[in-house]
Write a protein that binds this DNA or RNA. Structure first.
Lengths: 117, 117
DNA sequence: TCAACATCTCCATTAATATTGAAATATTGA
DNA sequence: TCAATATTTCAATATTAATGGAGATGTTGA
C-alpha cells in the first residue's frame, strides 16, 4: 500500500523534464530496462546530470538498477507506478466509480498497434 | 492528448502535500466538488495557503472552480487525471501491455465497499 | 597491469517554490 | 448601505532543487 510520503516523492520525481522522459522511456522499454548511457544519449544530457536524476528516481522507488558489466541498467518499478495511480484515484467519486470509469478506459496500458505475443 | 509540459505541471502540482491531499479529497468527492473553505478545514490550512495551492492546481488543469454565492467550489478535472496516466503509461512494455496489465488491475477506479447506484 | 569506458560523487552557483500575515475584493443578508 | 463571510492578492522570507565541471570509482579487454 502506497503511503502519502512515498507518493509525494514519486510525483516530485515525475515533475522534472529529464526524469519524466526517463520514466516514459523505461515504461516503453519494459522489464528489460535500458543502460544509463543509452538514456543519456536519448536525452542529450551529461553523465553527472543523468546520474543525479536517475538516483532521484531510484530514491523515489520508481526505478531500480542492476549492474551489467560496466553499464548500469535501469528499469521501471511497475508496481510503484500502479500503486501511485491507485493511491491517487482511491475511492474515486465517493464509491460510484462508474462516473469516472469511462475516462479511464482510454488510460489503460495499451499498445500503439496490435502485437503478437 | 496530453503534452509533456502539461504533464510536468500536473506532476509538480501533485508533488506537494497539501495539493495532493486536496486532489485526493476532490477525487473522492467526484463531480459535485467541495468549497475552498471545507478543504481548508479538512487540511487545517489557512485561507492564503489554500488559495495558493488551489490556484496552483487550477493552473495545472487538475481542478476547476465555480462560484456559488460567496463560496468557490472546486472539483477535480477527471479527464486531466486520466490523460496524465495515459501519458505516463503510453506504449508500456514496448507493445506487450500484458506484461504490466496485472499490476494495473488493482489500480483501477474501484470503491472501498459495494455501492448501489 | 594498464588504458579505455561507464557511471557516480562532490561542490559551488543559480533558480524555483512554499509560507506567513496583512490588506484587498466579492457576495450576502439584515 | 453596512457588517459579516469567503476567498484572493501581495510582498518578504525561508527552503529546496537543478546545473556543470572536475575528479573518483568500478569494470573490462588487451
Amino acid at each position: 500500500m502506497m503511503q502519502e510520503d512515498r507518493a509525494l516523492m514519486a510525483f516530485a520525481s515525475l515533475s522534472q523534464e529529464h526524469r519524466l522522459r526517463i520514466v516514459r522511456l523505461l515504461v516503453e522499454a519494459g522489464p528489460v530496462g535500458l543502460p544509463a548511457g543509452v538514456l543519456g544519449d536519448k536525452l542529450e544530457a551529461g553523465s553527472s546530470k543523468m546520474s543525479f536524476h536517475l538516483s532521484h528516481l531510484e530514491q523515489a522507488g520508481l526505478v531500480h538498477s542492476r549492474r551489467d558489466g560496466r553499464q548500469i541498467i535501469y528499469a521501471v518499478e511497475i508496481d510503484a507506478l500502479s500503486g501511485l495511480i491507485a493511491f491517487l484515484m482511491q475511492d474515486c467519486c465517493g464509491g460510484r466509480p462508474e462516473i469516472c470509469a469511462p475516462a479511464f478506459a482510454a488510460a489503460s496500458c495499451a499498445p500503439k498497434e496490435s502485437a503478437d505475443v
